[in-house]
Design a protein around this nucleic acid. Sequence first.
DNA 1: ATGAAAGCGCTAACAG
DNA 2: CTGTTAGCGCTTTCAT
Lengths: 345, 345
Amino acid sequence: MSEHEHPESENTSRPVRNITDLARLAGVSPGTVSRALAGKSLVNAKTREKIEALARQHGFRPNQMASKLRRQKTGVIGVAIPLGHDVHQQISDTFFMTLLGHLADELTDKGYDLMLRRVIPAQDEDWLDRFIGSGIVDGVIVIGQSDQFDRIEEIADGYLPMVVWGNHQEGQRHCVVGSDNRLGGKLAAERLIAAGARSLAFLGDTEPIEFAARFAGAKEIADRMSIPIRALPTHLSADRMNGEIAEHLSEIEGKVDGIFAATDAVAVACLRELRERGVSVPNSVKVIGFDDLPIASQTVPPLTTVRQDIAAGAKGLVDLLLRRLAGVDTESLVLPPHLIARETA
Amino acid sequence: MSEHEHPESENTSRPVRNITDLARLAGVSPGTVSRALAGKSLVNAKTREKIEALARQHGFRPNQMASKLRRQKTGVIGVAIPLGHDVHQQISDTFFMTLLGHLADELTDKGYDLMLRRVIPAQDEDWLDRFIGSGIVDGVIVIGQSDQFDRIEEIADGYLPMVVWGNHQEGQRHCVVGSDNRLGGKLAAERLIAAGARSLAFLGDTEPIEFAARFAGAKEIADRMSIPIRALPTHLSADRMNGEIAEHLSEIEGKVDGIFAATDAVAVACLRELRERGVSVPNSVKVIGFDDLPIASQTVPPLTTVRQDIAAGAKGLVDLLLRRLAGVDTESLVLPPHLIARETA
DNA sequence: ATGAAAGCGCTAACAG
DNA sequence: CTGTTAGCGCTTTCAT
């Protein structure tokens, strides 16, 4: 018989609905049951055992709602994914989803539950206030600034326990964890140029600030070396991306020999398109991605890319949030990206 | 000024902490405030407006914990991802993560929040009971049966609001939504054979029942056509997979001309390894995957695969769960997979 | 349409 | 070490 069924055969009285019922059975007060089940030290070992046995036997678990209300904390961290630019972009965005997986592990480790919300700011001005103000979470992690930088800044002024994955800007007020995108962009451009490229293109959307920073970094290097670089705007949703990449490649054929893709996903699509056109990589065109997702090592040829350390990012987000939960106004954490040299550049 | 800051300049009294404070300000009773903020019809329009204005002005939102406790429902659906066979497998498993994304959308749509838990059953016998029994969620969706089929069956006997993504077996007691894996396996084998393959292999882990069913379906067709098929066990975590696939390919070289990969991720790795060995696909060896993830269309050559309709799966999971929340003991939902013919088979 | 009052189930301060 | 007690903040009859 599963623990989940209350064995009414053994016990003719009504089921154990709460701590008081259990207290009655154990012949103690509700307070003692509460302490015993919460694992507080100040309970007689025998009493505790008896109570635990009874609880097990009746499949009883204290109501968390009541506990949370009373203690004024929920043990839940909200994770919000704002879908700003391209609503469908993140649905299967491997990077964000992997980050989420690590976050889940990290939070579980620290004894917190994770409440996930995907929000469309355009349809819901109030998304952050609502999440925060409802008393349903103790703190919030926002995955990606999307186009909500200002909104997040506003909130940060009055709400401490929030940490955001994203790009760091000089003088910003919200606590952010993220890769140094500008540096990543520099690494990418340097690599392309070192590999022999003399005319560069950035393939991707430069609206989101993370990507803007990657482009800016690459541009800084290109400008310094007097090498031209142009941005080729591309949506990141799978359906629009392929067509747009094809168009761009037609347009730049023979004029560009180094492509910096905003993400590995873009790079993979670009690689495929180049192969279909019979353009040799890296001989005729060099390509470099960003993220170092698992797919990067599976392309042909294997993709040279800029790695973001997702696990470290998740750990950083959670560590900082816990410190903020404890009242500390933490600094942002900027992680260094690393060049992963494979064969496309 | 952000709504989040309580404008103490305008109002010297202490901040509005609860419905009672707001009631005092509005000159009404807490009950009326509750009704007004909950959007009940039986409130005078003017009173409601006044209350809403006051709430907005003070950035007040009713405490959800208290509400949930009182109403004995949480508005939260638990989503559990059991990590049975290969703990790291799912960390970046695109299929599950995409399903999760759709689930989040679907649940949000229906007004539910989503509480995510990744659990390692081997370290935590009680994972499902704990999730369910704590009164923290109104219902549970389990993503993947992993090696927990029996555990889930037990729970299902005493707990209605649970739906599971996974494989359907004759006579099982828990409500499941999933693709017809056996049929998918048949489609795959038929396709490989139709493309000219005369000796098949299933590449992947046959432990998890979904994969076992895919293999069984393929085997049924192969047997019927008197074509040999063997299983090549492969871990699904990225780090171990590549080496194992390489070994298998060495072993079967020249002996197998049709490979059915358990998932697209495996197929992609297999394709890359074949290319490295100079084996021509589909001429020398045909390959077919399972899932139809976005990468499937990006491989070279584009991957023929068996599509699972993830969005429909998510919708099915949520719909069934809502029916169960309403007390209906729903049947399982088995979705038909579809062959997506591209160029590898 | 609104007010009064009784809890939802638990925790923690206080007293013993 | 344990019992008693006073709420946490909200919802919902039951009156009016």
